[in-house]
Design a protein around this nucleic acid. Structure first.
Length: 311
DNA sequence: CGAATTTGACCCGCGC
DNA sequence: GCGCGGGTCAAATTCG
């Protein structure tokens, strides 16, 4: 929590406040995609930016395939995510290992510093089985006085599956960006070489093991690095308390473009787990929307998601 | 008073 | 083997 967030009137009154001038890039190593979301149209006209649609056209693979790959976890554990090497975006290629994709902000900051006008976000797709299974279950439970916990952890270790990981660089004044899901903070750590701490959040939904890490770039404090890990097995809660409640349904549609975190969050629930069975249609809608070669129409991009989430 | 956050301690992996 | 850094836990604290 940071009391800062809680005391932040913007955060309380308008969860989208911080998103208005956000720039999101997401891509994988095969299909660099940048989605520039900005209230001001200027950045979209900046040649250094690639529009979302342009991104789709540019890449040989449609964006859905891109994300499919991401969720299919075709990468190996210590894979290197090479976000992009695209002169059109004036961005240098950097290699971000799964471990460092977000954890090591030095790489990210390096990337940022290479081009302050283009914020690169890595959708780092990594099979973190080893990392997750080993690291997810540590701490006091292993302290010898509770063997049952130890057993549970071992069990969980076996069950633990590969978790996709997605990192975003988001230009926002708000650290904890609202994405429609409810998160509980379970830790905070100082980041080496950075004055800004890294916060660890876990989805509050039962049985949903999705985690996210939030940290701020020390070289560009306006950039928030958010890493999602895992897939939500549920829809965005509609009973969010406070600022979250009801934000994403009608308002998002009315407001135009939704927040890309929300956008991505709709990818997170696996289709097989979707009880409503309409995921495919959603994906279809997404693809259809994305075919529109007009940046302005991106305002409609997220509407289908928002509508479909209504219970 | 329940829920969420804070924070120090702890564990583990990795590099040296 | 040791130290460092990342990640997690859980008691204490704060908040609504």
């Amino acid at each position: 929590m940071s009391s800062n967030e809680k005391n932040n009137p913007q955060h309380n009154s308008d969860p989208f406040q911080g998103f208005n001038r956000s720039t999101f890039n997401f891509f994988d190593d095969n299909n660099p995609c940048i989605y520039n979301q900005s209230a001001a149209p200027t950045p979209a006209l900046d040649p250094s930016y690639m529009s979302f649609t342009g991104c789709l056209n540019e890449g040989s693979v449609d964006y859905y395939n891109s994300f499919s790959k991401a969720f299919d976890m075709s990468y190996s554990s210590s894979d290197v995510v090479s976000p992009m090497d695209d002169s059109a975006t004036n961005t240098k290629r950097i290699d971000i290992s799964a471990e460092n994709s977000v954890g090591d902000s030095r790489n990210l900051n390096h990337n940022i510093s290479e081009n302050q006008s283009t914020i690169n976000s890595s959708v780092s797709c990594s099979s973190n089985e080893d990392e997750d299974s080993s690291k997810a279950k540590k701490g006091s439970g292993d302290q010898g006085d509770d063997k049952s916990k130890k057993v549970n952890k071992a069990t969980k270790k076996e069950k633990r599956q590969k978790e996709p990981r997605f990192a975003f660089l988001t230009k926002s004044e708000i650290d904890n960006l609202e994405d429609g899901y409810r998160w509980r903070k379970y830790g905070q750590k100082a980041v080496k070489n950075s004055p800004f701490p890294r916060s660890y959040y876990r989805c509050t939904s039962p049985k949903c093991g999705v985690k996210k890490r939030v940290e701020r770039s020390f070289q560009d404090p306006s950039v928030v690095i958010t890493t999602y890990e895992g897939k939500h097995d549920h829809h965005i809660p509609t009973t969010l308390r406070g600022h979250g409640a009801g934000v994403f349904s009608p308002p998002a549609t009315a407001m135009g473009p939704g927040f890309p975190h929300e956008f991505l969050s709709h990818f997170l629930p696996s289709s097989s787990n979707d009880p409503s069975g309409n995921t495919n249609s959603m994906q279809y809608q997404q693809q259809q929307q994305l075919q529109i070669p007009d940046y302005g129409l991106l305002q409609d991009l997220f509407s289908p998601f928002t509508r479909s989430q209504a219970p």
